[in-house]
């Protein structure tokens, strides 16, 4: 039997892989195929909220089911959403990393607002500048719905889909053409893109203009003769958080 031990090693690893895959399929069914049974990427354990004050934790974990005492199912909250709002040709992107969330809404030439917030009990509450705020909840279908309010204008958001890179949210902050700008782009999964630039973003009423097209492959755009190197804000990788 000694000769078969390499095969045994192989089969043991394969069996472990299959078991893990099945546990995954049960715990996190494919949202595209089984929308009704999708479990929203949210933790219900109270312990998860303790990560709020510490600097590094990126993902909330909670013991939901435990095949063995040592291994527990963690519910990492690491997702990106992007899509159109239900109003005003605006796009909305939400990146969730751990219990932190970053959101952005823009429509090109007139609306651009950034939000930061936290995730708790399946709900994302975000605050922006002035009277801007957003509130979104996870749907059972693996999407997000709610509303984003920018300076008293409310943009309803319905079934905002989960997206994967290169779709998602991109940001550039810095000097360009002698001005301080904060540019944001939302690349949707169908390849359409909406982007806006806030000029003097820290002013009480920054100017909004449409952003030049961002090349998502290189994450660059050219504005006023300056090449802007954007970075992706991603809940999956944690970049931008």
């Amino acid at each position: 039997m000694k000769r078969n031990t390499p095969l045994l090693t192989l089969l043991t690893g394969a069996a472990l892989g299959v078991v893990l895959l099945i546990v995954n399929m049960v715990s996190y069914p494919n949202p595209a195929k089984s929308p009704t049974s999708y479990s929203a990427p949210v933790t219900s354990a109270p312990a998860a909220s303790t990560a709020a004050s510490s600097p590094a934790p990126a993902v909330a974990t909670s013991a939901v089911a435990s095949p063995t005492p040592a291994v527990t199912v963690t519910v990492p909250v690491a997702v990106n959403f992007a899509g159109k709002a239900q109003k005003g040709n605006a796009a909305v992107a939400v990146a969730i990393h751990g219990d932190k969330a970053i959101a952005y809404i823009c429509n090109g030439p007139t609306v651009a607002a950034w939000f930061q917030g936290t995730v708790s009990n399946g709900k994302v509450d975000l605050a922006g500048k002035g009277n801007s705020h957003a509130s979104l909840t996870f749907d059972t279908a693996g999407t997000m719905s709610g509303s984003v309010t920018v300076h008293d204008t409310q943009f309803p958001v319905s079934t905002l889909p989960m997206v994967h890179s290169p779709a998602g949210l991109y940001i550039f902050t810095g000097m360009a053409g002698g001005k301080m700008i904060k540019a944001g782009w939302i690349e949707m999964s169908n390849g359409t893109q909406i982007g806006s630039i806030l000029i003097n973003p820290d002013a009480s009423a920054p100017t909004v203009i449409a952003a030049p097209l961002l090349n998502v492959a290189s994450a660059t755009a050219t504005y006023d003769g300056t090449v802007l190197h954007a970075t992706q804000i991603s809940g999956i990788s944690g970049s931008g958080f």
């Binding site: 995954n24 996190y28 990427p41 990126a58 199912v73 990492p76 997702v79 751990g98």
Partner: peptide
């Protein structure tokens, strides 16, 4: 974007 994992780590 998510899968079963081991608890006790930050991500």
């Amino acid at each position: 974007g998510i899968a079963v994992n081991i608890a006790g780590f930050s991500s």
